[in-house]
Design a protein around this nucleic acid. Sequence first.
RNA 1: GCGGGGAUGGCGAAAUGGUAGACGCGCCUGCCUUAGGAGCAGGUUCCUUCGGGAGUGGAGGUUCGAGUCCUCUUCCCCGCACCA
Length: 963
Amino acid sequence: MAGYDHKQVEAQAQEKWESLRLYEADLHAAKDPYYVLFEFPYPSGDLHIGHWYAFALTDIFARYKRLEGKDVLFPIGFDSFGLPAENAAIKRGADPKTWTYENMERMRAQIRSMGTAVDWSKEIATSDPEFYKWTQWLFLKLYEHGLAERKEAPVKWCPKDQTVLANEQVIDGACERCGTEVEERRLTQWFLRITDYAERLLADLDPLPWREEIKDAQRAWIGKSEGAKITFPLSFKKDPTQNDWRDPDGKPAGITVFTTRPDTVFGATYVVLAPEHQWVRAIWDTEHDDVAFNKDEIAKYVEVTKRKTERERQENKEKTGVRIDGIMALNPATGEEIPVYIADYVLGSYGSGAVMAVPAHDERDFEFAKLHGLPVRQVVAPRVTDNTNPPQEGKEEVGRDVTLSIVHNPATNRYLTLDWKEQPWVTFITGGMDEGEEALATALREIKEETGYTDLELVRYLGQTQSEFYAAHKGVNRVARNRCFLFSLKSEARTEVAAEEEATHEVVWRTKEEIEALHMQHAEFDYLWKRIHEGDSAFTESGALIDSGAFSGRDSEEAKWDIVEAIGGERTTNYRLRDWLVSRQRYWGCPIPVVYDPDGKPHSVSPDHLPWMLPTDVDFSLSSDGSPLRTSKELKERVERLYGEGWTPEYDTLDTFVDSSWYFYRYLDPKDENDFSDAGLMRQWLPVDRYSGGSEHTTMHLLYSRFFHKALYDLALVPHDEPFNERNNRGIILGPDGQKMSKSKGNVVNPDEFVERYGADAVRLYLSFIGPYNEPGSYPWNLDGVHSMRRFLDRIVTVSERVRDVEATEELRRSLAKTIEKVGSDLERMKYNTAISALMVFLKDLEALTEVPRPVFHQYLILLAPLAPHLAEHLFGITKGAGSIHMTSWPEADLDLLKGELKTVIVQVSGKRKGEIQLPEDASEEDAIAAAHTIPAVAELFASSDPSRVVYVPGRILNLVFS
RNA sequence: GCGGGGAUGGCGAAAUGGUAGACGCGCCUGCCUUAGGAGCAGGUUCCUUCGGGAGUGGAGGUUCGAGUCCUCUUCCCCGCACCA
């Protein structure tokens, strides 16, 4: 390899940094603290290109901040609890601890080879008892304040990993880690009450300086919706004595539903319970044994549903269900008795696990109603405005009941329309309903009167719409309530049409295409036409209420909360977010510091006994029932020894996301035996200034640690209520084939090979150059890319050989000033790719010189130092002498130099580029126009006329418009 | 379906509303050497009658001027998804 000896250069630089203890931050002495954090790695054993991307590129930022004069904390640790260690134990008989700690040892050496300026003196590992002692202590703090609780709930179970999972760890119905389809089980487990913080987690997102997509993903995950709880009283047909049935609150038996559309309650034609709903289980209670005629059918349905995996329930979207025969619910708005169903399209875990079904206005209910022959009752009419004739302000509003009939002739496949003689209108057949007249009768009468056709068959009632327009001849705003019908013409039978009707309009049969090409004089045309040709569907928007008692005629959105009040409902907010399930039936995790008394009641392990040690005498075989901790004799004996006969341990361990929810406090005071961190240092150093990580943690780690932090804030254990200030989600590196790297595809790039050949600096530069680091894109690894970065470094070495003590020209100093500006602002935004580009451009200036001025070269090296720290250190040493380049400071750009500079001003004529002129930035418009005359094409135009408009942006553009 | 992001040369990508394609890869030409997994110099959006013309997924609009702002649309990626 030509150029410099990267192995020697890098080894020397790394030794120098370590001997100078360059990166051991003195936290107490810091004047201008800046905390740079990356997500600590799981010690899987091998450092791959993704680790380089995560660590080395965050290191660039940390080095830049340090040169900028900040006191930087840039720590590292290991997220060292986790399943792979245990799987290795099962597969190869290795001890999880040995396996993990050997991996950590290997990774430390690899991470050092990147030239990352991490502060090893503050290293932590979550599996160290000195660390997990405080995980346990914090867990107990949450428990003591009611934020950790044991409860029975349907939970996701991964049969392969033999453990429960949090909701966030289930992706498309499968285990996030191993891809196995998860099952649902009902178990008593430990939960952290993250739902108590849903509102704050949501509201506090707004001011965070994060990219909107991260915030939006968290907002969607929290999933706030506002609605109402409405209770539907029950009556028992099979056994009326059950009508005395009271729920635990003493209220008469009733099903409470959650809905965001209480305005549609008048259209609720049945009620649906999730198979997991408490009432469904109550049917088996001996007390209420006799409520259903079809108990066996219900039992079978519930059983079948239970056996389905999460993914099967998601994939098979056909809406199955079974009616509870023997129970009726009372619609509190209409007073009508409606049936009760059990169906798995209703989720047990959302809202109240029960819904009121409004088929006319909810797609899912509509689908279910169609399949099960249930009534569809419209209560919201689409509201349309006639734009050619809109309602006028201040005019009286007058309602009118009318019919709108669309007649189809199947023989000719044409539709009946009217062409109006006095108006430019084409319409279907409309007409007002007479007092006491049925809509259908009106429709048939109007068709007969206006067109003469009499032999019609009703195909479909299309529902009601409400159109609003200004009726000029009456001087009022008309609110037309249209009953819309679709008829089929059975025969051409016709009666005579009255002369006055003939005089106003002409009957025309038109094809579908002809009608679509016209503008029909009905504002609801699109709505109706879609229903005719694509079939009925639920109308899910807001509109005008109809058939809704006293609320009819009002806007559905506006009347929503009045309806809730009128029927005794309760306004409420619901969240999609579920409590965080933290129990894991696994060995290699933080033991849950809880013991059970002989009655099975949980008690905190006393703080004196922390850390509550993970036992070592366990059997990892998967055949054991539940957590491997159950096989430990030592743990059982420990509990009995400390607490007495009959007391038992908690056998589950904590989700590793609990460890990572607080690890960044521990870096501040990693050895503290008396506290989880240092209160004074937390005030000084938190929140984390910049947190660099992967987008896969947006709704897991990032949300969990925000919750954890807020909970600790409320307990006065941490000083701020948000843990992280700026956050960047990096992208991913793809294989050379543009596919995601994976062993099975054989496209995994091993960084070691490239480091060996080109050096760590070249690999760092290449990863930086591949694309913007502040955006979560994906970038394919180009096999020639690292080589080209090495070439760039070699060119710098060549230039360094011509460094002399000479004066820099003004032009060179000007170019340097621009480069300092550009590189600094790019590094600040983690746009490393354009920073390198600027360094390459400036290198060309240096290469043009036979003698390179020493101060200019040294400033250039400082700009390079964050990106290529080893070579910058080396060249700094041989061209200057003692000290480390990383202890210098970022050069200041001499912006005064830029003032007198000639700028290229583009001369345009009507926005088209015609040429360019050189002008100082402060040149006047007159000077610019004068200079523009030197361009022949422009001078020619000036010869015949003067420009009608001149746009002059100094230093940029002169645009002349000749009209 | 809903929410978010995106679409610029053969490829990765640059462009406070002001020269589109910086920088790099690849490719082409030449040089140096003779075999290095090199190095150096020049060229490289497309079309062209060599005057120019066209061009940032598509169609409109705002503007002196649009990759950038607005409306509609197509496609791709990510997240959520029977959430009532």
